[in-house]
Write a protein that binds this DNA or RNA. Structure first.
Length: 815
RNA sequence: GCGAGAGUGGCGGAAUGGCAGACGCGCUAGACUUAGGAUCUAGUGGGCAACCGUAGGGGUUCAAGUCCCCUCUCUCGCACCA
């Protein structure tokens, strides 16, 4: 290449990418002599096009990984594709292409798009979750879970999406109208025999975030989702049976005036008296119907019916009516509640509607409550009343005391409930990993033997959705022999939720398509694991991010990994909106295509703008003028470092010092900013340095300070602009590759200014400025400040009451 | 309703309790140009000024965008979970 020409990203970017590939500089192999850093960014679903959101997530993560590499870490930064899932099937149905063909074509395209980013991926570690070499291990994990009792099959009411024709996990049902996460169709309840993973076994441990540095937001979302509540289980007598009731307010037990069972509660039929049978049946019918119709009712007025039976409150022997109502759910607690209308919003509304008694048992300290217009739900200031042995006890203490008392009396005990449900993993779809189970009439559920894995997904299945699993109609797949008795048997025809594939993918990168005995090559695992830094969107907080934590804990208990958490540090990026501040979507026509941007400005500009334009964790609307600014910056950098100066030069030691000082301040700033994911200020600091460089260029071009600084500048630029930095580096005479150079070190002595301008304040208001040596004695600064004419004038001979001096910053004279 | 987070120029955004608005976009003026939506230079929170300015109101402090209390607005998550 010639010595000086224009900045032409389209020439230099493909050139260097090819060179990197040819020289394998991003190959990451175990190297015991170096500290390791496993940087992982969420793998994309191969939808067919890499969009700007992918770039926004991945490019800054790549810059961070490159920084770590230059800092001397052996960095693993892999990439792959989460390739099973519904869109492939839907596209296939629409376009009559096989889901596999569609997926693999998309991967091919997206791999090229990803490569255009110039990231430091080690493509030899690429994983594709729909390849048999991958899903063999997904099935392997299933079998391990099954052996451990963490995978089980159960007949239960489950959420079913009538549009996607499959069941869904609780996490995949969203919003008030309980719609499908993928297609927004409201789900319906169905009674089906499905496979579950026992994530609830880990509910308590999943609440512990002490071993990981994850955003508070994600932790709180997960805690919220797991929904731990502590209280008591109390035994009520009902028709010669015992009904357990969960409550978080045992202190209100004396205020129970009725009991409510979920309509599906098994005792309902037993206790309903003949007089009420008809209305109870009618109500049960209504509620089941309701869940099948659209659930649009927003302000759901509470409804219910009396069963005709009465239960006995064990604490005072009172007889209370038993109702059924759909505000009590079978899936939480015991499906039965004790209603305390005086101290619970829902019970209050219900009691008012059906004229049930309301009995006050908690009152605010020192006052009385007779007629309630609303329930008194306060705990901290409440005191127990009308509660035989506990009158006068503060409600907060009452909770614990009553539990102890219940236990002594044999009436109940302490209990904890979680909102988290077991993970429903069966999907009645084709494009997923088959569940490796065989049903034998003689032997029952038989796991597929490990040596028979993978259970291959047949390519010639009819995958049109019918509500039944497509594999059920594939005779060759369905019919098999029992591995235990050799008799005729049938395979499980449901496939696994694709979130399973992504729950362990961080381990797959260690040894893609591993052929050994366990999930991954232990030599690799021992070195690289666990993941040091995970980056991606916060939208996965209650799905992928909770699942993968569960997986790691389960794998630990199976002896497959030896740590508790999969990813030590997590960082979430924000979302880039359209220029109209709306979510990008084809229908709105506000989609920004990264391919077009790369075409127009080159990859480095796109990377730079994505890092500079927003706070990474917040994101925000796209600005098509903004990217022009980044492009201009890179052009200026090019001119600055490469085009020689003409005419007279007037270098001076002073100017050199000024430049070196700024350079070292920039090294420090850029380092700490990259450390903190503050990509925007990292680039701002580079811009400041480049502004100073251009100011001093005429005089300093060719000096040692100039060449040293331009080399350092190039190194600092390398994480953001890998191609441009490589080109500049080579033209400045550096050895290939800039990406193998150590990150520059700053000299703290140079970072510190020798003289500073401080502010002279009177009563906290700025009145004057003063230039002083940084290490000036306070006494001298005081004298100087007080000697300033404007200050003398303002003081008018008055004696300051107090003078505060903050070294190198300001002096505040209080009068 | 519950939980979390955020409110700073026209815009994106900077600011260990210590000079509010770094850096950039946009805008204004000028230079160079046949031309400029290229490039370069200068300016750019408001106000003629003293001064006033970080959603609003209190407070702590010599000093508050930053810490404390209250209010408002917005975003996100959960939502009849007993």
């Amino acid at each position: 290449m010639t010595k000086y020409d224009r900045y032409q990203p389209h020439k230099i970017e493909p050139y260097w990418r090819k060179k990197w590939e040819d020289t394998k500089i991003y190959r990451s192999v175990v190297d015991q002599t170096k500290p390791k850093h496993y940087a992982l960014t969420m793998l994309p679903y191969p939808s067919g096009d890499l969009h700007i959101g992918h770039w926004y997530a991945i490019a800054p993560s790549d810059a961070r990984a490159r920084y770590m590499r230059m800092k001397g870490y052996n960095v693993l930064f892999p990439m792959g594709f989460d390739a099973f899932g519904l869109p492939a099937e839907n596209a296939a149905i629409k376009r009559k292409v096989h889901p596999q063909t569609w997926t693999l074509n998309n991967i091919k395209r997206m791999r090229e798009q990803l490569k255009s980013m110039g990231a430091m991926f080690d493509w030899e570690r690429e994983i594709i979750s729909c390849s048999p070499g991958y899903y063999k291990w997904t099935q392997w994990v299933f079998l391990k879970f099954y052996e451990k009792g963490l995978a089980y099959k159960k007949l239960s009411p489950v959420d079913y999406c009538p549009q996607c024709n499959t069941t869904l996990a609780r996490e995949q049902v969203w919003g008030e109208d309980r719609h499908c996460e993928r297609c927004q169709t409201p789900v319906v309840k169905k009674e089906l025999n499905q496979w579950f993973f026992k994530i609830t076994d880990y509910a308590e441990e999943l609440l512990d975030f002490s071993k990981i540095d994850w955003p508070e937001k994600v932790a709180s979302m997960q805690k919220n989702w797991i929904g731990k509540s502590e209280g008591a289980e109390v035994n009520f007598k009902l028709a010669n049976k015992e009904v357990k009731v969960f409550t978080t307010r045992p202190d209100t037990l004396w205020g129970v005036t009725f009991m409510v069972l979920a309509p599906e509660h098994p005792l309902v039929d037993l206790i309903t008296t003949d007089d009420y049978r008809e209305q109870v049946e009618e109500y049960k019918f209504q509620t089941t119907r309701q869940s099948e119709i659209e659930r649009l009712a927003v302000d759901k007025e509470k409804t219910g019916v009396f069963t005709g039976s009465y239960a006995i409150n064990p604490v005072n022997g009172e007889k209370i009516p038993v109702w059924i109502a759909d505000y009590v759910m079978m899936g939480y607690g015991t499906g039965a509640i004790m209603a305390v209308p005086a101290h619970d919003e829902r019970d209050f509304a219900f009691a008012k509607k059906y004229n049930l008694p309301i009995k006050v048992v908690i009152t605010p300290e020192g006052s009385e409550l007779d007629e309630l217009s609303q329930p008194y739900t306060e705990v901290d200031e409440g005191v127990m009343v009308n509660s035989a042995p506990f009158n006068g006890t503060p409600a907060r203490e009452g909770k614990e005391k009553v539990i102890t008392w219940l236990k002594e009396q044999g009436l109940g005990e302490k209990a904890v409930n979680y909102r988290l449900r077991d993970w429903l993993i069966s999907r009645q779809r084709y494009w997923g990993a088959p569940i490796p189970i065989i049903y034998c009439e003689k032997c029952g559920n038989v796991p597929v033997p490990y040596q028979d894995l993978p259970v291959l997904l047949p390519e010639d299945a009819e995958f049109l959705p019918t509500g039944e699993s497509p594999l059920k109609h594939h005779k060759a797949f369905l019919h098999t022999t029992c591995p235990q008795c050799g008799g005729p048997a049938e395979r499980e025809t449901d496939t696994m939720d694709t979130f399973i594939c992504s729950s362990w993918y961080q381990y797959a990168y260690l040894s893609p398509n591993f052929e050994g005995e366990t999930l991954f090559d232990p030599k690799e695992g021992e070195y690289w694991l666990p993941v040091d830094l995970y980056t991606g969107g916060v939208e996965h907080a209650c799905m992928h991010l909770i699942y993968t934590r569960f997986f790691t804990k389960a794998l630990r208990d199976l002896g497959i990994v030896d740590f508790d958490e999969p990813m030590l540090e997590l960082r979430n990026q924000g979302i880039i909106l359209g220029e109209d501040s709306e979510k990008m979507s084809k229908s709105r026509g506000n989609v920004i295509s990264p391919d077009d941007l790369v075409e127009a400005y080159g990859s480095d500009t796109v990377r730079t703008y994505l890092m500079f334009g927003w706070r990474w964790d917040l994101g925000g609307p796209w600005n098509s003028r903004g990217i022009e600014g980044s492009y201009r910056f890179l052009n200026r950098v090019w001119e600055l470092l490469l085009s020689p100066v003409e005419g007279d030069q007037n270098p001076s030691e002073d100017k050199c010092q000024t430049l070196l000082k700024k350079a070292h301040q920039t090294i420090k700033k850029a380092s700490t900013d990259l450390e903190d994911f503050s990509f925007n200020t990292y680039l701002a600091s580079l811009m400041e340095l480049s502004n100073l460089l251009s100011k001093l260029k005429q005089d300093l071009w060719g000096t040692k300070a100039w060449s040293e600084t331009s080399k350092n500048f190039t190194l600092l630029l390398a994480p953001a602009c890998p191609h441009l930095a490589e080109e500049l580096w080579s033209r400045l005479g550096g050895d290939y590759s800039v990406h193998n150079q150590p990150w520059p070190q700053w000299d703290e002595a140079l970072v510190v200014e020798e003289t500073v301008e401080i502010v002279v304040q009177i009563n906290g208001r700025i009145k004057e400025r003063l230039v002083i040596p940084i290490d000036a004695e306070e006494e001298q600064v005081r004298e100087k400040a007080l000697a300033l004419e404007p200050i003398k004038e303002l003081l008018k001979g008055k004696k300051p009451r107090k003078i505060i001096y903050v070294q190198g910053r300001l002096i505040n004279i209080v009068i």
